[in-house]
Amino acid sequence: MEVRTIKVFTTVDNINLHTQVVDMSMTYGQQFGPTYLDGADVTKIKPHNSHEGKTFYVLPNDDTLRVEAFEYYHTTDPSFLGRYMSALNHTKKWKYPQVNGLTSIKWADNNCYLATALLTLQQIELKFNPPALQDAYYRARAGEAANFCALILAYCNKTVGELGDVRETMSYLFQHANLDSCKRVLNVVCKTCGQQQTTLKGVEAVMYMGTLSYEQFKKGVQIPCTCGKQATKYLVQQESPFVMMSAPPAQYELKHGTFTCASEYTGNYQCGHYKHITSKETLYCIDGALLTKSSEYKGPITDVFYKENSYTTTIK
């Protein structure tokens, strides 16, 4: 009895394709271990004539594949690729409408935090270190965002349907971005203890939790000093293409032309909904596939993004 075979390709990165001759009487799992086709788990399936010449994702289970996976995804987590594939199996079914010149995501599976993050990423200057993220990001900007969303979920250790947080998501993504040249110098002034300067680099240099107003941050924000008295913390120097200011959701007025974009969060910790506000020729609110415009805006804002380049204080 002759062994019926077909020729397929296996890959971990969709760049390096490895030619395989597979036995049609055995499952993919018996031949390769966990195997995925377009995100779908085909591990328990036997090869079919229609699979001839198709590319299958496999887990990096030998040295060659491990090197290829690390170079593309910059992670050695053995569960990463499987999590990416199972997320992709959902995100490829989502709709990605162009809204006001940006790629958004039609609401499904509690994905409003991903839509808000995706919209924000198209408006701030950011370059990702893992080629996987950078490639998928370019495709997302062009309207094909399924891979990018699935990668975000995998890097953030999230599953489809789980509630997510924009600030946490951005923080994970910033860790995989090139923020080497970003720098922030802060000064804390206390009447009792004097003053202390701190220099922050990388992710810490672009994120701040405690106030939404970048102007206020430049002037000074009140913080408790270690001595128990009130101290003032203010920005001395900022070198970065953008800054992200966050605070627990509270009524906040966004003035046209003073910011790049913002995240609105309605609801409580267990259950809520994100919308995205962007400042173009007027203010726009993007909620999944829905767009509304207004000249002014007041609502429960939790993150505001500002364009920056270089700032030095005039406070002496």
Results as ranks from 00 to 15, higher is better:
residue 107 W to D: 06
residue 166 V to N: 03
residue 219 K to R: 14
residue 136 A to L: 05
residue 166 V to M: 11
residue 53 G to L: 11
residue 52 E to N: 14
residue 171 S to K: 14
residue 278 T to V: 08
residue 282 T to V: 12
residue 294 S to W: 15
residue 89 N to G: 09
residue 161 G to R: 06
residue 256 H to P: 14
residue 11 T to P: 06
residue 95 K to M: 06
residue 159 T to H: 11
residue 276 H to M: 07
residue 52 E to A: 12
residue 43 T to S: 14
residue 101 G to A: 01
residue 315 I to V: 15
residue 293 K to P: 02
residue 35 T to W: 11
residue 12 V to P: 07
residue 87 A to S: 08
residue 297 Y to M: 00
residue 75 T to I: 05
residue 204 E to Y: 04
residue 314 T to S: 15
residue 143 G to C: 01
residue 111 N to M: 08
residue 273 H to G: 05
residue 193 C to H: 07
residue 73 Y to H: 06
residue 132 A to F: 06
residue 103 T to D: 04
residue 93 K to R: 13
residue 143 G to I: 03
residue 142 A to S: 13
residue 120 T to C: 13
residue 308 E to N: 00
residue 263 S to V: 09
residue 3 V to G: 11
residue 281 E to I: 06
residue 182 C to W: 02
residue 56 F to C: 14
residue 98 Q to F: 00
residue 20 Q to Y: 10
residue 57 Y to A: 08
residue 189 V to M: 07
residue 92 K to C: 01
residue 114 L to A: 01
residue 69 A to D: 10
residue 197 Q to A: 13
residue 196 Q to A: 08
residue 170 M to W: 02
residue 214 Y to I: 08
residue 129 N to R: 15
residue 26 M to Q: 15
residue 49 N to E: 11
residue 60 P to G: 03
residue 41 D to K: 08
residue 287 D to K: 01
residue 21 V to E: 15
residue 255 K to H: 10
residue 16 N to G: 09
residue 213 S to A: 01
residue 142 A to E: 14
residue 199 T to R: 06
residue 154 A to G: 05
residue 310 S to R: 12
residue 186 L to K: 08
residue 118 L to K: 07
residue 172 Y to P: 04
residue 48 H to F: 13
residue 212 L to K: 01
residue 146 A to V: 03
residue 211 T to C: 14
residue 66 R to K: 14
residue 233 K to D: 00
residue 236 V to G: 01
residue 109 D to A: 05
residue 147 N to F: 04
residue 141 R to S: 08
residue 226 T to P: 13
residue 199 T to A: 03
residue 246 S to V: 10
residue 163 L to R: 15
residue 312 T to Q: 13
residue 172 Y to F: 09
residue 99 V to F: 14
residue 141 R to F: 11
residue 158 K to F: 04
residue 75 T to Q: 10
residue 89 N to K: 11
residue 79 S to T: 14
residue 63 D to A: 05
residue 185 V to I: 12
residue 131 P to S: 03
residue 309 N to L: 09
residue 246 S to H: 03
residue 179 L to F: 02
residue 230 Q to I: 15
residue 211 T to D: 09
residue 252 Y to K: 02
residue 181 S to K: 14
residue 96 Y to K: 09
residue 71 E to I: 09
residue 261 C to Q: 00
residue 291 L to R: 02
residue 36 Y to W: 15
residue 38 D to G: 11
residue 52 E to F: 10
residue 85 M to L: 11
residue 27 T to K: 08
residue 62 D to C: 08
residue 284 Y to H: 05
residue 295 S to E: 09
residue 312 T to S: 12
residue 59 L to S: 11
residue 101 G to M: 00
residue 292 T to G: 04
residue 303 D to V: 04
residue 136 A to C: 02
residue 136 A to I: 02
residue 88 L to P: 07
residue 91 T to C: 09
residue 286 I to K: 00
residue 283 L to E: 07
residue 212 L to E: 04
residue 186 L to A: 10
residue 162 E to H: 08
residue 179 L to Q: 04
residue 110 N to M: 06
residue 94 W to M: 00
residue 259 F to D: 02
residue 202 G to C: 01
residue 152 I to S: 00
residue 69 A to R: 07
residue 21 V to K: 12
residue 129 N to M: 04
residue 231 A to F: 01
residue 237 Q to H: 15
residue 237 Q to I: 07
residue 293 K to F: 04
residue 296 E to G: 10
residue 310 S to T: 12
residue 262 A to N: 05
residue 94 W to R: 01
residue 29 G to Y: 08
residue 189 V to P: 07
residue 132 A to G: 10
residue 217 F to S: 01
residue 200 L to N: 04
residue 205 A to F: 00
residue 63 D to M: 09
residue 231 A to H: 02
residue 252 Y to E: 07
residue 8 V to F: 06
residue 275 K to M: 00
residue 36 Y to C: 02
residue 241 P to L: 02
residue 115 A to D: 04
residue 63 D to E: 10
residue 96 Y to P: 03
residue 78 P to Y: 07
residue 138 Y to F: 13
residue 96 Y to Q: 00
residue 251 Q to V: 13
residue 270 Q to H: 13
residue 286 I to Q: 01
residue 156 C to V: 10
residue 135 D to E: 14
residue 20 Q to W: 08
residue 142 A to Q: 14
residue 74 H to I: 05
residue 98 Q to V: 13
residue 25 S to T: 15
residue 187 N to C: 15
residue 30 Q to T: 14
residue 220 G to F: 02
residue 284 Y to R: 00
residue 3 V to Y: 13
residue 10 T to E: 06
residue 68 E to S: 08
residue 32 F to L: 13
residue 109 D to T: 02
residue 240 S to E: 01
residue 186 L to F: 14
residue 146 A to I: 00
residue 251 Q to C: 07
residue 100 N to C: 15
residue 27 T to Y: 10
residue 309 N to A: 13
residue 81 L to R: 06
residue 277 I to M: 04
residue 225 C to H: 04
residue 105 I to R: 05
residue 305 F to I: 12
residue 245 M to W: 05
residue 205 A to I: 00
residue 83 R to A: 09
residue 23 D to M: 09
residue 282 T to I: 06
residue 305 F to E: 00
residue 32 F to P: 03
residue 101 G to C: 03
residue 299 G to Y: 02
residue 188 V to Y: 03
residue 224 P to H: 13
residue 119 L to E: 03
